[in-house]
């Protein structure tokens, strides 16, 4: 059985029981954006510690892609970029 989540404008299929990180990885989505920022999102430590794979979620607080199971119809996207202040 295949179901799907939405990464920005992409449809990403997943298998029930799979994390968001696993689904994105299998779809070849490595860059979790945002483009151009000095520190873009990406799956890194796989255990929720580094927070690099945190994704924005429609209608709630952001979650770690590596800890959170994909749910059918879930809409996710990039977090705001980290910008170094101008001092």
């Amino acid at each position: 059985m295949m179901t799907r989540i939405f990464w920005n404008d992409y449809v990403v299929p997943f298998r029930p029981g799979e994390t968001i990180a696993a689904a994105l990885g299998r779809a070849g989505i490595i860059n979790l954006g945002p483009a151009g920022g000095p520190a873009r999102g990406r799956v890194f430590c796989g255990i929720g510690a580094c927070q690099a794979c945190v994704v924005a979620i429609e209608g709630g607080a952001p979650v770690e892609a590596c800890l959170t199971l994909a749910r059918d119809g879930l809409r996710i996207g990039s977090m705001p970029a980290v910008v170094v202040s101008d001092e």
């Binding site: 945002p34 920022g37 945190v54 952001p62 977090m79 705001p80 970029a81 980290v82 910008v83 202040s85």
Partner: peptide, 10 residues
């Protein structure tokens, strides 16, 4: 006091 994550960029 409490600090949140980023809601916007820079």
């Amino acid at each position: 006091m409490i600090v949140t994550d980023r809601a916007s960029t820079g």
